[in-house]
Amino acid sequence: MLLVLISGLALGALYGMTAIVYNVTYSTAKVLSFGTGHFAMVGGIIGAFLILGLHWPIWAGLLGCLLVGALFGYATELLAVRRVLVSSDQHLWVLSTLALAIMVQEAMGLWWGTDPTPFPHLFAQQRGGLLDQKYWLPIIAAALMAGGLEIFYRHTLLGKIFVAVSEDDFAARARGLDTGRVRTLSFVMAGTLGALSGFAAGQLTFADFNLGTTLSLAGFIAAALGGIGSSLGAMVGGVVMGLLTAFTSHFFGAEYQKTIAIGLLALVLVSRPQGLFGRPLMRDV
C-alpha cells in the first residue's frame, strides 16, 4: 500500500511538473500548448538515447536532453505560436500546437520505435522498493522546479519581467519590454523544464513516444484542477491526479485510469471552473 502511495506521488510529481509547464507558457502567451506533454516525452527519449545509445556520461546526457527540450520549445513558439497569435482567430493555436505535437510524436515514433524502452539508472542503487530512485527523482525534481520558479518569478529581474508581461501584456509593452522576446523565452523555458521532467521521470514512464498525449491530458487536468496560472495549484492538482491514478489502477485495474481522470475533470469544470487555486475566469466583454 505504501508502494502505491509513493508511486502515486511520483506520478503526481510528473503531472504537476507538466501542469507547471502549462502555466509557464500560459502566463506570457495565453496559449495552452497541446505539445506540453510532448516536451517530457522528447526529454525521456533523448535522455535514453544519449546515455544508453551513445554512452554519454549522465551529466552530458542531461545537458543534451535539456538543450533539445529548449530547441523544441523554441520551435513550438516559432512555428506554432508566433504567427498564429497575430491572426484574430483565437482558437487557431489549439490547431497549430496540436499539429506540431502530432508531427513530433510521429517523428519520434518513426525514429525511436514504438515500443517503450528502459531509461538508464542515474545513480547506483542496491535494491528497489520504497527507496527506488524512480519514485524519488520526479518528486525531488518537482519540488526543485516549483521552488526554483517561485524564486525566479519573485527575486530575479527576468522573472519580474515575465510576471509583468503575464499581468498586462499591453502595459508591459508600453514600458518598453519586448513582449515577443519574453514569449519566446518562456517557451524555451517551458521546453527545458518539460524535458527535465521527462528526464527525471524517465525510469517511471520509460522512453515511450506515446507518452506525450497522455501526459498533455493528465497535466492539463492537473492544471485545470489546481487553477491555471498557480504553481501551488499545479502541484496539488498533479498530486491529486497521481494518487487517484495509482489507487484506481491498484483497486480497479489500469484500464480505468483515464475514465476516472476525465470524470474528475468534468466534476471540477462543472463545479469550480477556475480550479481550486485559480482566479475566477473573467467575462470577455
Binding site: V84, M103, E106
Partner: peptide, 13 residues
C-alpha cells in the same frame, strides 16, 4: 499521421 500533422500545420499557418 505525420503527414496529417504537417498538412494541418501548413494549412493553419
Amino acid at each position: 499521421t505525420f503527414f496529417y500533422g504537417a498538412i494541418l500545420l501548413a494549412v493553419v499557418l
